[in-house]
Design a protein around this nucleic acid. Structure first.
Lengths: 193, 193
DNA sequence: TGACACCTTGACACCGAGTGACAGCAGGGG
DNA sequence: CCCCTGCTGTCACTCGGTGTCAAGGTGTCA
């Protein structure tokens, strides 16, 4: 009961925030306005989201965990380029599925410096997680070997480039094809011993 | 005359900020404290720096421009891996030269989420600049070709990994050797047609 | 049904980052 | 000597974010 109500209020808040921020710009909207639009108080907003950026970036919250589990689930002997391509494919597929909303959110993030910074911070966290998983997967020591961190960074660089192009083309370009082209570029480095 | 005084106040502010932030932590120091320590008012602080993060991150301000000009100065026929390795070598050399101060600043940035986010934002700007220069250099169209953005991203991934290791080892590891090892990993992708 | 505990909420006060406006104070040139 | 310019401190203000407290709804047990 209480859980469902919490989820309801959270959705209401996210809905109001996304609509207001996307149409008026990030800085022109105050948290009081978002909260009022959702029918709650400013104090309640901060009981659901840690910051103004959070209500937007949390939209991409599960992606990190999704990628980590996706990488862990790949067959053991698979080449790193293939494993990472499927890993990065997970959040991209999520975007493509909800392309209407995801596109608006991504464009808002990439165009707003404060949001972009938070997004990059989250990506850095993803990179650390993927690097740890890769090191474990390949039996490499992350303390002395640069490869895991570099490989995870390259995969996320590809992810970022694809996202950038996808948002720049207003969703016209096919994300899956873009990933394939990006991984064709970085694969030689990922698979070289 | 006025210019020299401006520079003097700016240095005073940076000095006070770096010392206070490094010893007390980013969140525990207010701008009033920094300004008072430098002998000016809070309002004057904001006439020199746009934000609390800025006073730390601006320490790395020139690096972006330095890398851009360094890349533009490389011989035309040089392989991308070699050109980018020298490009990334510039800010690393700057760090190594002022290793005492640079190390403290980098460690502060990597350990403080707000600073890390701003730093990543700045790196993203560098990547855009380097990608544009690379595209111009190689005669590629950045509108359709993913390579320039990916190559710049990989080079900065290497930069980031090196910085991380350098700061994690308290400056014990040799940055130049770390870059060489990192570029040995990513070079196959940079130089593949 | 009533009493109790628990959770959520709004109201209020508060702090710190950041900005706009204004007045005062230096120095440099006429 | 005066005026113009640039820098500065003060003040008042907005907004993001947090701690506290009292009030209201809900579920449980007797």
């Amino acid at each position: 009961m209480a859980q469902r109500k919490r989820q309801l209020v959270s959705n209401e808040l996210t809905e109001a925030a996304l609509q207001l921020l996307a149409s008026n710009g990030f800085d022109a909207v105050t948290i009081d306005e978002i909260a009022t639009a959702a029918g709650v108080s400013k104090r309640t907003f901060f009981r659901y989201f840690a910051s103004k950026e959070d209500v937007v970036v949390q939209f991409l919250a599960g992606m990190g965990a999704d990628m980590h589990t996706a990488l862990a689930a790949r067959p053991a002997g698979e080449r790193p380029s293939a494993a990472l391509r499927h890993t990065v494919g997970v959040p991209i597929a999520t975007c493509a599925d909800h392309s209407d909303r995801a596109l608006r959110v991504v464009q808002l993030i990439l165009r707003t410096p404060a949001l972009h910074a938070r997004f990059l911070e989250r990506q850095a966290q993803w990179r650390d997680d993927l690097a740890a998983e890769l090191a474990h997967r390949l039996g490499r020591d992350p303390g002395t070997d640069l490869y895991p961190r570099l490989a995870a960074g390259m995969a996320l660089t590809a992810f970022d480039a694809v996202l950038h192009r996808w948002s720049g083309s207003d969703g016209a370009e096919d994300p899956d094809e873009l990933i394939d082209r990006a991984f064709a570029v970085i694969a030689p480095a990922l698979d070289a011993v």
